[in-house]
Design a protein around this nucleic acid. Sequence first.
RNA 1: GGCUCGUUCGUCUAGGGGUUAGGACGCCGCCCUCUCAAGGCGGUAACACGAGUUCGAUUCUCGUACGAGCUACCA
Length: 471
Amino acid sequence: MTDMISTKVRFAPSPTGELHIGGARTALFNYLFAKHHNGKFFLRIEDTDRERSKDEFTDQICESLNWLGLHWDGEILFQSNRIKEYQSAIQTLLSGGNAYRCFCSKDLLEKSRAEGVYQYPRTCRNLNENEIRKHLNSGENYVIRIKIPEGQTSYNDIIYGHVTVNNSEIDDFIIARSDGSPTYNLVVVVDDHSMGITHVIRGEDHISNTSKQIQIYKALGFDIPVFAHLPMILGPDKKRLSKRHGAPGVQQFKNDGYLPDALLNYLVLLGWNPDSEQEIFILDEMIAKFDLAQVNKKGAVYDEKKLYWISGQHMQRLGNKNILDGILAINQSWGNGFNIQYQYTVIELLKVRAKSILEFIDQSVYFFNDPEEYDSKAVGKHWSNNSVNDFINTFINKMEAIENWNTEQIEKELRNVAEKYEIPAGRIIHPIRLALSGVPNGPSLFAMMELLGKETCIRRLNKALKLLPKS
RNA sequence: GGCUCGUUCGUCUAGGGGUUAGGACGCCGCCCUCUCAAGGCGGUAACACGAGUUCGAUUCUCGUACGAGCUACCA
């Protein structure tokens, strides 16, 4: 390692809503970048907007981050605890001549904006001592604005490359409100500097804030970090996915039974390409291969279908223990009364055909309870008349005689019955599956029967014989 | 309005002066098969437009169009 300064990044959400996939993706990229470089990933809560910030959202964001496995280093930094630092930075700017008091009324400025004047006309920029004192003495409210110098501001974005803006395009924006509280662009710079952030990785919506922030860095004499702006995640209409726009919260994915790694896997593919044809990653693999230089500039449309597929891929690959943990996290009573070996076998049989934990739970009910009803379409197809009952009765007799209750024996006996009646085995297999599970599809019938056990199979078959066919 | 950024299959993307423009999801078909999945094989489908540079442009340049973001005493 030639890096003398270790990498430090941060994820800085404002607690005005729950964590949604856009934020999760930003957090993920920060996390991957930090871990890839053996650096630190910090969490900062941007709660300077006292009206909209809520503690419950802070809790929810932390919970979501933890569920995803994106654990932050050190203590959470709350901006609301750092007012003194901001005040002192503002004072430095003011006394250094890099900022000034502005006494213009909000109404006036809003009016001129409505008339097409979008920039602050810098009315108060060159007020002299006497004029300032006069305003102050008459008790007028004022805000503090940064004094943007002439010239150009440019920086080299890891993802977007060189971005240059004429300073004439940068407003003398407000750094302190009339109540003295600092604004976003000021606090970000003060915090990123005091936290020692080396790389600022955030959404593309901050590109135009960056040149403003660079002005503050310069005015304060701070080193400027490296910037990397991530393309937006878009809705189907190509507009930025936002809460208003139906951006799903991370919590929602948890409730829908998605595994954290699957969500992360989907998210990492939105904008980043691994420079190979690999599509399925676990977190450690993402860390090993992640590179900001491989992130593209184009916004990516959120596509639930692909997430769904990725989720299925993860289900297949995941260890049975992990799946069990995932199930229990949603439904603690799953598998109650059945031993662990039985539970693991259920998982083994089902995991290739469930795309989410929720689906998994849904598909597994008949392993623990006798079916209460039978899929009516399947009944019509496979058990529409009494001839089926004869086959089943014959098979029940054969089953009772089986001593070694295992897949092979069961299959052998069933095929014998089919042969005896000179019918395709499917004519017996389908109705039996229906009788045992209530549904027309699932894992290999014989493997299912072995697991359910002889008693249960016979009991369920007899029950079905009483109820089917429906006339 | 101004500024900044972007534009390859429906979607996620690879590629890059001469390619049958590659992969993945989805969709369709076939195989496997007791069903459903999974898996295998195949198919469908894209370089926004116009100039210029060039022997040649999807790739480079410039325009145009379209889209997005920012333009708050929100973050």
